[in-house]
Amino acid sequence: MGLYPLAALAFGGALLHVLNHALFKGLLFMGAGAVLHGAGTAEMEALGGLSKRMPRAAFLFVLGAAAACALPPFNGFAGEFLIYLGAFSALNGPANIVLAALLALAVLSAAGALALAVFSKAAGAVFLGEPRTQAAAGAHNCGPLMNAGMTLLAAACVVSGFAAPFLILPVSTALGAAFGLRTTLDFSGAAATPLIYLTAAFLALAAIVWVLAEKRRFFLGGRQPAAGPTWDCGYAAPSARMQYGASSFSQPLTAFFQPLLRKTLNIPVIAGYFPGKASFSSEARSVVFDHLYAPVIVRLRGLAFRFSWLQHGRLQFYILYIVAALMALLLWKL
């Protein structure tokens, strides 16, 4: 079974990713909470420019977004790297394994690029540019405790990004508990060298960033950069509403995935030389939600309600259920 180590590599990578996912996803949710707290709304189209009003949260959110896109040198990368490596190693297996690996590679890489689109949209629409509404313009910074929570998770994202080789131990312990010693050894053997190289590469990247930032300071030579308006192509009165919004940013992609998203557009008809006020709106429905989740959930709920007479709030009967279940299990095992 030459494929055993590959499966161990990919599964270990997935476990590592789960570990790291907890860190950056927690950070991103806290960031969303900070925005909701500071601006009073979490509607992306109503925000913008929060980076000026809550700079700390903006910095930490961007860091979390980069980690979520699995960008080096943050912690999202190592897990995805091992899954990719497992898929690439599987390319040298028999034909049916190659097809599975091909599918995995295509889906993973497309999902990676889509994640980049999604998180640059979220960070851009919420924190960058000019505020689109009064609520966003009047947003206030979040308190030190709120910032501290996010800072802690962000620091964990950076540290576990650089310290990926040290995370082999907990992951392989978990693998050992589930699948035995051989999987553990296969995983740590295959993952150790690449992860150590990755850490070296991350350090090189950090060093290059530092050198280039210093070099830029040298080029500036202490001169004060001039301030001006954003280039507006000669238009005299740009307004915040002319910025690319969240849905306009993702429009090319949502148009491409129209068969899956079923976006409905409400386009006003413009008639006459002096048309009155008009409004445009679009709503994306998910085919998977509407036609897979929703029907299944409805059926499940219907089924569950049929047994609702079991739940009546009388404690003695509940204890009877437990006893009956235990007795049944005991008899079954006899």
Binding site: G48, G49, S51, V62, S120, A123, G124, A125, L128, G129, E130, T230, W231, D232, C233, P238, A240, M242, Q243, Y244, S248, F249
Partner: peptide
């Protein structure tokens, strides 16, 4: 992100 930071519709 640097492009979105300018708030310009072209860069968006």
């Amino acid at each position: 992100l640097a492009a979105l930071d300018t708030g310009s519709s072209f860069e968006g």
